[in-house]
Structure formats: C-alpha cells, structure tokens
Design a protein around this nucleic acid. Structure first.
Lengths: 360, 360
DNA sequence: AAAGTTCATGTAATCGATTACATCGAGCCC
DNA sequence: GGGCTCGATGTAATCGATTACATGAACTTT
C-alpha cells in the first residue's frame, strides 16, 4: 500500500505528455521499469510470464520508447548520416535506396545531408556527428569532415565508424566501397579503339574529383594499350551534369576536325551531348560514336541506346551500409571493397566512317 | 572552496566520453551550466562579457551540445521525417532537394523513409514519429500513417505537425501542397486535341493513387471540352516507371488501329514508350505524338524533346517545408497550396498525319 | 529612502529511458 | 543440509542538456 503511494508521487499527472512513459507500462504490467526495458531489449532475460504481461501492457497503452532518452543513456542513436554531393543527381538515388534498404533491415534510420557544393553545410553536418546524433556515417563526397578544418574538433569527429562510398578518401583508414574506375575507363577506351576509333574525345568529370582522376588515368591507360597517342585537345571539361554534356557537344559541333568517338564519364553528359549533336545534324553513331558511364535507368531508352559502363549502384549502397553495420558491431571489415563493372554494349557506338580524316 | 569540492564530486573523470560536456565549458568559463546553455540558446539574455567567456571556452574545448539530451529535455528534436513511395524515382530527387534546402535554412535535419511499397515499413516509421524522434513529417505517399491501422495508436500519431506533398490526403485537416493535377491534365488533353488529335491514348498512373485519379479526371474533362468521346480502350495502365511506359508502347505497337497521340502521365513512361515506338519503326511525332508529365531533367534532351507539363518540383519541396516550419512555429498556414504548372511545348507532339483513320 | 522592478546568474529538478548493483529464491554439489 | 552459483527482478544512479525557481544587485518610482 505504501508502495502505491510512492508510485503516485512519481507519476506526474499534471503535465500531459506526447507519449506513454515506461512507468505506466510498468505499473500496468505490475513489474519494474527495468523489467519492461529488458523485455524489449533482451527478451530472453525475463521470464515468459512477465514478458507476456509486459507486451500486453505495451499493446494496451500504445507505448513506444522515447528514443531521445534511450540514446542519451545508451549513447546510441540508431541513426546513420549519409553525406552526398548532389541529391538531385539521378546517379545517387538508387545508391541511396540500396543504403536505405540495408540500414532499415538492420534497424537503422537514415539522415541525409545534401552538400550541394556548400562547405558551410559540411561544417554543420560535422557538428552533427560530433553532437552524437548519429552512430556512423557514409560519405559519398570524397573527403572527411575535418579535412578542411583546423585540428581542434577533428579527434571527436574521427572517433566514429565511417565508410567512404564511390569516391575513395585517400589516406583514411576506413572501409572504402567503390568500383575500379580506372579499369572501367580503360575498358571502355580500349573498346572504342577496338572498334577502330583513333580520335577519342574524353569529357571529364569535375577537376579535383577522385573519381575523375581515376577515370582519366584509365582513359590514358586505354589509349596507351591501344597504341594511340594522347592529345590534350581531346580532353573537354565537364561535371557529370546534362548541361555540361550539352556544352561539350556544342564544343564538338564547332570544331572543324571532329573526334570519331566521344567517351563521356557520365551517362547524363552523354545524353546531353548526343542531343546537341543530333540537333546539329550529326548522326550518332554513324558520324560520331558516344559512350557513357554509370548505366542509369535512362541509358537503355536513350536514342540511340547508350553503350556504357554499368555500375551496380544499388549493390554499392548495400555494400557500404553492410560495411558500416559491421563496423558498428565491432566486426572486421575489409578496407577496400571493389564491385565489378560491366561494359554494356548498345547502339551509340559503331565503327567510324571510312576515314575522312584518318591518321597514323 | 566548498563549491569546487562539490563540482569535483559531480564530474566523473573515470569514464571518458565522446564529447565535451557542458560542465567542462562552464568550469572553464567560470560560469554555471545554465549560463552556458543560455549563451547559446538566447544570447541576449547573458551579459556580453560572460557570453564572450563562454564562446571562448566553447571554442577552446570544441564543445557541441549533445542533441539527445537536448531533445529529451526540450521535447524537440530538430528533425523532420520525409516519407516517400520511391526513392529511386527521379521525380522525387529534386523535390527532396527543395525540402532539404528549406529545412536546412531553418535549422532542421531530414530523415528519409523510402516506403518502397512495403506497409511494414510504414508501420515502422509511424512508430518513429510516435517515439518522438521527429518534430514533424512531410508525407509524399498519399495517406496518413494511422489510416490502415486500428485506432489505438492513432491519437499519438496525429498529434504532430504534418503536411502532405503532391499526393493530397483526403479528409485530413493538414496543409496540402500540390499542383492542380486535374487542370494540368485537362490542359494537355485540350492541347493535343487542338493540334487535331482525335484518338488520344491515356497511359495512367497506379490505380488507387490520388494523383492518378485527378489526372484521369482532367483527361476526361479535356476530351469533353474538345468535344471528343471517351473510349475505354484508349486507357492503358501504367505506374509512372520507364518499364511500364515500354509496356504501354508494346501494347500500342501491337494494335492495328493506333492512337494518333499518347498522353503519358509521367515523363519516364513517355520516354520508355517513345523508345519502343521508335524501335518498331513508328516515328515520333510524325506517326504518333507523345506527351509527358513532370518535365524532368531528361525531358529536354529526349529524342524528340518532350512536350510535357512542368511541375515546379523544387518549389513544391520548398513550399511543403515552409508550411511545416510555419506549423512548428504555431503560425497560420493555408490548408491548400497549389503551385502553377506550365505546358511546355517541345518536339514530341505534332499534327496527326492526314487522317488514314479519321473519324467524327 | 522604502518598495517594487528588472536583469543576470546560479541551483537543482527534470526529461524518459538504460543499466550497474543489490536482493532474493531456486537449484546444485559434496 | 550448508554454501555456492545462477537467473529473475527491483532500486536507483545515470546519460547531458534545458529551464523553473531562487537570489541578489542595480535601478526606478513615489
């Protein structure tokens, strides 16, 4: 009886709150709060009888644990931060889905940060991780939070499981999940050469980008292996967007001496570029062949259907999430996971025309 | 002196924690924790001198407030849940960006839930909101969490600011942000009719979808206004994906008596459909005109460039986020916000051929 | 000059869970 | 049967902030 009096004092009926509290469940099930908590977290540690009582009380009250309280105490948030450079880019959406799927299966939620090229936002999200709002992070942006900041906050930021996806982060001792960009670009370049092309124009990604560096190397590897010489004027800058592909297209249209093939380092650019060529009356692939990179959904329905490099995007997302989860569970994970790419041959690449401007 | 002794007892040096605690900052700045907290939350309430000391101490220690603790106490998480049916769909990515931008500016973070057609996940995310992990939600999926569940948990779930984006939610007293789908579909149908088309095939969205219902009505409105009769065999089911557009395309190819124009309720379907027609030797728009809906990035570079309805996607996202923020700040917000759509005329629609199968 | 205000600040209660530690009873061993 | 281990359970400390309330100084009012 004394007991009940005490409990009354604890429960404040004056301020009605959003959710049902664990106390109420405990009272209804006639157990302690500890037992309620255990019934949820480690069911095997409470007797079947009490567990049933607890579950019934939970169902009756509609109780859901307050996650702020839980994470304050347990130092775990069940949340993963995903940092990516451009949310509006098609390429990422399927990767995101792969991540989300896998995280969800493991009981984690996903917080998304779209940097959109703004370093200010980056700092903000660094603070986010430091503030203990997330248990780990997946970085698609090619560098760590602290890298451009002074050393002060760095220690706190690095002290958390992180994996790098797609854009590898040099000198970081974290799992990296990626494709072999260099080999893939070489493969495509060699394929174009094998079809008889000798002037292969390269539309790059953003300068400074790790992906871009690797693909550029692969392009040069490919040229070398095919016995073609590298010519600086056959490199045109781009940034993976449709618009930059269109710009590259306009550049080509204006040229007198045109390449016979164009290797775009993203499908978006290839599609934009093809559109400009077609509008200018240049046929693809009869006059100029065009190859892409990524194999996005639209590659197969482009006109002509795009010859490209397939990246297993959803798989990349899943692999990154899995690696991170392994890290969170203190399991071992390989430092480097490389998924296979595939050369997908469709209709946008053909033999060059019987050389009007053959060389070598 | 006694004071310092007390503080020592409070601070446990034994367990080293992730972040710096407010206590440490307070000690370093020689103020109370309350002052530190206030210096951050409402700077005007502490003297400039102490504020400076606090800020200096914060800089020196690299302190960031623990957000779990903050939200436990203040009942605010600074997080918004965004529920959407398909993360991999291009259409959503730009909307998401609009949402993210606006939320970020207001200091909120974004948690994404990709339902991917699974009701199980929906229940999970309903629990999420009930668990007080988010302050509000933006729903792109066309119904409330509780709708398919029994009444028990519902009250808790509804007790939180929510807005519906794109797919309106009937009978819900929440702000809805959308375009006028019916008027837009009517506009397109009338445009097609005005170009001389009399057999206009309609490729629908998923059945049961609110968007779809509205657009379907608009299609029929348009037919009526143009004095055309509705014919059930000119309605083909789709689900907004490229693949379903291709299926619709194959259906058309197989027909003997083909429509002269096709109105697809998404650009993805239009692009997939065009690809199938072209492959079958049917020219677009010379033989068949095709119109889309949404004006996604690829519409302009499609071959032929797509005539479509432009939805202000990023604006939709921003508007939804703004409405939600207003709600969170207890401000008034209109129940219904309708953004303007625009008929974008490009190359995929032309006059029908001098009628081989004219009628009427 | 007494009383009342206002403002800056400190003390400690509070948010709602998890979990270390204590307790108690049952089962086991010799 | 006494001592020991082990498992189930309860009690209360704890996570790290915010904030209600208390306090005292400075300033105003009459």
């Amino acid at each position: 009886m004394d007991d009940i009096g005490q409990k009354r004092r604890l429960g404040r009926r004056s301020t009605p709150h959003r959710g049902v509290r664990i106390q109420e469940v405990a009272k209804l099930a006639e157990v302690s709060t500890a037992t309620v908590s255990r019934a949820l977290a480690s069911p095997q540690r409470v007797s079947p009888e009490k567990r049933a009582r607890v579950l019934e009380a939970i169902a009756k009250t509609g109780y859901t644990p307050n996650l702020s309280a839980r994470s304050l105490r347990s130092q775990k948030t069940g949340m993963i931060l995903v940092v990516l450079p451009d949310l509006a880019n098609t390429f990422f959406s399927r990767i995101l889905r792969g991540i989300e799927e896998t995280l969800f299966e493991a009981g984690y939620g996903m917080i998304i940060s779209d940097l959109d090229g703004s370093p200010e936002k980056e700092a903000h999200f660094a603070a986010f991780t430091a503030a203990g709002r997330v248990d780990g992070a997946i970085l698609l942006n090619g560098h760590l939070f602290g890298q451009s900041r002074d050393g002060q906050g760095r220690a706190a930021e690095i002290d958390m499981p992180i994996v790098a996806l797609c854009e590898s982060i040099p000198n970081a001792d974290i799992p990296q999940i990626e494709i072999d960009n260099r080999a893939a670009a070489r493969k495509m370049t060699q394929y174009l050469a094998s079809r008889g092309h000798r002037r292969i124009l390269y539309v790059s990604g953003p300068t400074g980008n790790v992906l871009e560096r690797e693909r550029y190397r692969g392009y040069r590897d490919g040229l070398r292996r095919a016995g073609l010489s590298f010519e600086p004027e056959l490199v045109v800058p781009g940034d993976y967007t449709i618009e930059s592909g269109m710009q590259a297209g306009r550049f080509i249209v204006e040229q007198r001496r045109r390449p016979s093939a164009v290797f775009c380092t993203s499908d978006e650019m290839a599609i934009g570029l093809i559109r400009v060529l077609l509008s200018a009356g240049i046929r693809v692939p009869q006059d100029i062949s065009v190859a892409g990179f990524d194999d996005i959904e639209f590659a197969v329905v482009a006109e002509p259907a795009l010859t490209t490099i397939r990246q297993p995007r959803q798989e990349l997302g899943r692999a990154a999430a899995s690696a991170l989860i392994a890290l969170l569970q203190k399991q071992e994970t390989p430092r480097l996971i490389r998924l296979e790419t595939e050369l997908v041959i469709r209709d946008s690449v053909a033999e060059p025309r019987p050389s009007r401007d053959g060389r070598g």
